[in-house]
């Protein structure tokens, strides 16, 4: 039953992804500059430009180019980065683990802190803890991530010196052998606890910066969900039948309250991707975000488009996952669709 549900949701996502392919294809063709000219360089003769145009298939009809493009995209061939002169897919594969580390750290922070705080705020409705948490939520969503990053760096790295300023690992510590690509996992697997400790220290500020917006959002929606649920008749019944208070709140009330939170977590991912770009750039985090910013600044179109496409796919996958989790939490939804 779950399998069919997932299949159905995937099928719905296909048209959007196809549209994304079309969009990215058109975008690169809309660039004012002639790609053949750009690739040939300034000193190229018209003959050389024509040669390059033919070599890259740029003189074929548009729809034919699109098919070639799609074929390549499916095989994860995104061409070469104008900056690094390596295959874009290779660059991305190398940088992906760092971004995943950061994203999961931020998400973990947001959820593991956000949900309990949201419940806490709801239980202390209209008292001081509730007001304080609501203010935090308002700030968290309104604040500019890049500014928070700079402020945190200012305070914790520059003034207090408690945490490192940038990067993934201190220069003095040699990185562990690369097994998975993730610094933390590799350190753990090779027993390099010095690198692990240092890596974790470097992860703190970026993860907090990235997770702040999500934390604010999750606190807000969990609180609302819990408040709504507490009004329900079944909560009265569960109290009347002597359910233990802690279990009542954390098991029976919470599961009903998280529908809105789960939606938020799905949307959160989009925010983490977008925010990740800026946060990685500021903290010099060697992930896809800083790769993207670099591509922007150097006008590396191939990279930009590859990243856009990849993000679209990830986003679609996250949305499907969100729906599945919704269905698992509330079985009524699975029966409906």
């Amino acid at each position: 039953m779950v399998f069919r549900f997932v299949l159905r949701r995937c099928a719905l996502a296909v048209p959007s992804l196809f549209g994304l392919l079309v969009l990215t294809f058109l975008l690169i063709r809309l660039v004012p500059s002639d790609p053949a000219v750009v690739m040939a360089g300034d000193a190229a003769t018209p003959a050389q430009i024509a040669e390059i145009r033919h070599q890259y298939g740029l003189d074929r009809p548009l729809w034919e180019q699109f098919i070639v493009y799609t074929g390549k995209a499916v095989r994860l061939d995104f061409g070469e980065s104008a900056f690094s002169h390596r295959a874009v897919s290779l660059d991305i594969a190398q940088r992906l683990p760092a971004t995943l580390e950061l994203t999961f750290a931020a998400m973990g922070l947001s959820i593991l802190l956000g949900v309990p705080l949201g419940v806490f705020a709801a239980l202390r409705y209209n008292q001081w803890p509730d007001f304080a948490l609501r203010m935090l939520s308002v700030f968290g969503v309104a604040v500019a991530a890049f500014w928070v990053a700079i402020m945190l760096q200012l305070l914790f790295a520059m003034q207090l010196g408690w945490l490192p300023l940038r990067g993934e690992l201190s220069v003095a510590i040699p990185p562990p052998t690369r097994i998975t690509g993730s610094l933390l996992l590799d350190s753990l697997l090779t027993g390099r606890f010095d690198a692990l400790r240092d890596g974790l220290a470097h992860l703190v500020l970026p993860a907090v910066t990235l997770g702040l917006g999500g934390l604010a959002s999750i606190v807000r929606f969990t609180r609302a969900g819990v408040l709504d649920t507490l009004q329900q008749d079944f909560v009265t019944y569960e109290r009347a039948m002597g359910y233990r208070r802690m279990r009542l709140i954390w098991r029976y009330v919470l599961r009903n309250s998280v529908t809105a939170t789960i939606t938020q977590i799905g949307l959160l991912f989009g925010g983490l991707i977008a925010g990740g770009v800026v946060v990685e750039a500021i903290y010099d985090w060697p992930g896809i975000g800083s790769y993207t910013v670099n591509a922007i600044l150097t006008g590396d179109h191939q990279v930009m488009l590859a990243v856009t496409l990849m993000i679209g796919v990830v986003y679609a996958a996250v949305n499907i996952l969100t729906d599945v989790v919704h269905g698992l939490v509330d079985p009524r939804l699975m029966d409906q669709t």
Binding site: G271, T292, T308
Partner: peptide, 11 residues
């Protein structure tokens, strides 16, 4: 749907 398939900032 396509335009909303990517986070605004990236697009």
């Amino acid at each position: 749907d396509v335009v909303l398939a990517i986070p605004q900032l990236i697009l």
